[in-house]
Amino acid sequence: MPLAALVLFLLTGTLVPINRKFRETPGGIPVFVVSNGLHTDVVVPTQEPHTGLDWRPLLTAPGQPAPLAAYPFVAFGWGNADFYRNSRGGHTPGVGTTLRAALPSPTLLHVSWWAGPPQPGTRVAALHISAAQYQTLAATIQASFQTDSAGRFVPAALPGYTLHDRFFAAYGRYYILRTCNDWTNRVLRRAGLRAALKAPLAGSVLYQVQHAHKATSK
């Protein structure tokens, strides 16, 4: 595919909605898409009573206490392993890391715990969804984790940025057509939520989720 055609596809894919008829569920399960400007995470309840889903056992290594058990929300993001590794300490990954990420490369899942729901803002989009939609969304997230014989997620050797986050081994390869934001977009799309045809950028994901919220509010 010529470069100009590829760029056009990626950018116009932002504007083309999938699951256009999605509407929020009144009183449904809260989920959030949070962006730092470049990357997006999906934030969900740590324990969800309607579905009985509790993320803590899946995130707990043998012999360790449940991680940050009192934290009511947990965030999931998938991305290039070198990007995560080279962004430690507040650093910005270099040009070499960026160029290598255009080709298929290893990935990790980043999990962080939140003391409360994300606060509304230009980089936060919230939706309320049905129990069935949440179960599909959660299953899609779980399928990206490598698991041990007990079904728990496998911790990565890379330490977290803080005491409130961890990295885990992931499935999938990162490349120019399968980015961190495309992963978030795919999680939403498979759950039946409004998403973009293609979402290479954080703004691509937020644009469709924010439109979904506006459509419900009409």
Rank of each mutant, 00 (worst) to 15 (best):
V42C: 11
G192N: 01
D182G: 14
S204R: 08
A215M: 09
A66W: 14
T60L: 09
P104L: 11
H211G: 02
N36F: 15
G77N: 03
R88A: 14
G203Q: 11
A4M: 12
A170P: 05
V44Y: 01
P45I: 01
S35R: 04
R186V: 13
V74A: 02
N19F: 13
Q133C: 14
L38D: 02
A101R: 08
V205R: 00
D165N: 15
S217D: 05
F145C: 13
G52S: 12
T51W: 01
L197W: 05
A61V: 12
I176M: 14
V209W: 10
H110K: 05
H213S: 15
G160L: 12
T46S: 15
A170E: 01
I18V: 15
E48C: 04
V34C: 02
K198Y: 12
V42R: 09
G27F: 06
R23E: 06
S217Y: 10
F73W: 13
C180R: 01
G79N: 10
H110A: 02
T179K: 00
D41F: 07
L103P: 09
L158R: 06
T179C: 02
L188I: 02
W114V: 08
H211C: 03
G151L: 14
W114S: 07
Q119M: 13
A150P: 12
L137M: 08
Q135C: 08
D165K: 10
G52N: 08
Y134D: 05
A156P: 11
R190S: 13
Q47T: 13
P120Y: 02
T98A: 15
N80L: 05
D54C: 03
P30G: 12
P118H: 09
P26R: 02
D148S: 05
G116L: 04
D82T: 08
L68Q: 14
H211A: 12
N80Y: 15
L6W: 07
L10E: 03
T92I: 15
G52P: 04
V111D: 02
P17V: 06
R88G: 09
Q135H: 03
R186D: 07
A75S: 15
P155D: 09
G121Q: 06
T25Y: 10
M1Q: 12
H164K: 11
H164A: 13
R20K: 09
I18H: 01
S130Q: 05
F76K: 06
P72R: 10
T97M: 10
L38T: 02
A81F: 09
S217N: 12
R194Y: 02
V31W: 01
A131D: 12
R178A: 14
G172A: 11
P65H: 04
W113V: 03
Y161K: 10
A131T: 07
R152G: 05
